[in-house]
């Protein structure tokens, strides 16, 4: 279960623009196996674009993405997945007519496990995330928060080197959030991978991240430990106006 070799994922001077809008304007970030890096910022700051770049859905132009020193900027999403970048999506995107178990078996088969091994791994992960309900239930009838958990589990079932989680906590109540936080915290020790976490929920971010990278208007605003970022005046200024009306933000 433990990975002794440290892997490294880097984004170097990444620019992305859509038409006239600059979504990312020279952002640098990096993380290693075992890190949990939070990615926060106001709406439109470029968080999802950054994750898209890291996972091959978006090419940086200009800019570079390196995985263990190798330039992977031009790799497609599928090739990035094969290279070890797993991600979950804002909309979960589970296979609706497949069961919970089958959704988790798919990535296992994808990394070359036999059906028995993939099923066994799937059950282990379900157990690990604390999913006690019926694994043979079709995913199109799952409650929202379960969907989120399963989609994270599915990304992890790929045994990625890095798991990029896109707003897993949105729409969850306090109890569900706590459960989610417990899961995310234990990812590095269970799977040995690094985690990039996009979230608006500050409680979750502050609770699980080792480091936080703040984006605003496509530019890096700050990076540091939760405590450092909490007190950073630039961050407070960027957030104060916006976050004042958001009840879940507890800075």
């Amino acid at each position: 279960m433990s990975e002794s070799r440290k892997e490294k994922l880097e984004a170097i001077d990444v620019h992305v623009h859509f038409g006239g809008v600059k979504a990312l304007n020279g952002v640098n970030l990096s993380l290693q196996s075992g890190d949990i890096l939070g990615l926060i910022g106001p709406n439109g700051a470029g968080k999802t674009t950054m994750v898209n770049v890291l996972s091959g859905f978006q090419m940086p132009h200009p800019g570079t993405v390196k995985l263990n020193g190798e330039n992977v900027s031009n790799l497609s999403a599928r090739k990035m997945a094969r290279a070890g970048i797993g991600r979950s999506f804002q909309s979960a995107r589970l296979f609706p007519k497949l069961t919970v178990l089958e959704n988790l078996v798919i990535p296992g088969l994808g990394i070359g496990l036999s059906r028995r091994a993939a099923t066994s791994q799937a059950r282990d992960i379900l157990d690990w995330i604390g999913y006690r309900e019926d694994p043979d239930r079709q995913c199109d009838s799952l409650p929202y928060s379960d969907e989120r958990r399963i989609s994270i589990a599915r990304a992890l079932a790929l045994r990625p080197s890095f798991a990029l989680l896109d707003e897993p906590a949105s729409g969850m109540n306090e109890q569900e959030c706590d459960r989610l936080m417990q899961i995310i915290t234990r990812i590095p020790q269970e799977f040995g991978c690094g985690v990039v976490l996009i979230e608006h929920n500050m409680h979750v971010i502050m609770g699980v991240c080792h480091r936080i990278h703040v984006l605003d208007g496509g530019k890096s605003l700050a990076e540091g430990t939760p405590d450092e970022v909490k007190k950073d005046p630039k961050v407070l200024r960027a957030y104060l106006g916006e976050q004042a009306s958001r009840p879940e933000a507890v800075i």
Binding site: A77, R78, A81, R82, R93, F95, P96, K97, L98, E102, N103, I106, P107, L109, G110, I111, R154, L158
Partner: peptide, 13 residues
């Protein structure tokens, strides 16, 4: 899985 969401399936190997 591929029949339900081809792109997602490919991402999952």
């Amino acid at each position: 899985a591929a029949a339900e969401d081809f792109q997602m399936a490919r991402l999952l190997g």
